[in-house]
């Protein structure tokens, strides 16, 4: 069984988001980068499935050299090899083409991604890759089990979930509780140093979108506190001032 997991290299969830150069560039000052939390779920489930079925687990990132520590971390968590497509991820379409090209060459049985990246929150790359490869794609997947070549999944829908059955090969955009996040142990960290991390060049430069500028939401005003013995005061404020009731 060959499994491919696509991971993003994104600011830690506690990061303060700021921009520089007249709001045209993301400001990396003081920002810690991590494996996207949803990609981390995908990776955790992939490690379990690889251990269960044997085979090989490859992680892939489309990004420039600074993403390599993130790929090494994925190796420490349990991936067997890593691939970096050496290019800035220009837009989802660009990224999807790189992944589709690579996945086709490697003929993977299962491709796991996160339900969405936490920088651009598109939730689109898995579906695009699915269509490019003419392969089924499912997201957000909260449970994924193998039964021979049949994959049994639960997909979250508004206010509930649906159970699905599909055949390999397929693509899933993952979210909790598909697996518990895995923390690399000492042995993992040591072995990650010698596992292969290959760099390949981008296959296409085609894009569909270009971000020109960023903006921060307006700062929130101070909170209005209401005394705990005057709750009817709060009701009045919500009705007459905030006008939300």
């Amino acid at each position: 069984m060959k499994i491919l997991v696509c991971i993003t290299h994104v600011p830690d969830t506690t990061s303060k988001i700021q921009f520089t150069a007249d709001n045209t560039k993301f400001d990396t000052t003081g920002v810690q980068f991590i494996i996207g939390p949803y990609d981390d779920y995908a990776l955790a489930r992939a490690v379990e499935l690889r251990d269960q079925t044997g085979g090989k687990l490859t992680v892939l990132n489309v990004g420039e050299a600074e993403t390599e520590p993130t790929l090494r971390k994925a190796l420490a968590i349990g991936a067997d090899e890593a691939i970096r497509v050496n290019s800035f991820p220009k837009d989802s379409f660009f990224v999807a083409q790189q992944i589709a090209h690579f996945a086709k060459e490697g003929s993977y049985d299962l491709i796991l991604m996160g339900r969405e990246s936490i920088d651009f929150n598109g939730g689109m790359v898995h579906g695009m890759v699915g269509e490019l490869l003419n392969m089924p794609s499912f997201s957000p997947v909260m449970k994924l089990d193998l039964d021979g070549t049949t994959v049994k999944m639960a997909r979250e829908i508004e206010g509930g979930k649906e159970m699905l059955e599909a055949q390999l090969p397929l693509i899933a955009g993952c979210q909790e509780p598909i697996a518990e996040w895995k923390i690399p142990n000492m042995r993992g960290i040591m072995s990650a140093r010698t596992k292969p991390l290959n760099v390949v060049e981008a296959v296409s430069e085609q894009t569909q979108a270009e971000t020109k500028k960023y903006e921060l939401p307006p700062a929130k005003g101070a909170v209005k506190l209401v005394d705990k013995d005057q709750v009817s005061e709060l009701v009045k404020l919500l009705k007459n001032e905030a006008k939300v009731l």
Partner: peptide
């Protein structure tokens, strides 16, 4: 973008 922490102005080509 950034899970509601910012906005982007994106041009479609």
């Amino acid at each position: 973008i950034y899970t509601g922490k910012a906005f982007a102005f994106t041009a479609l080509t």
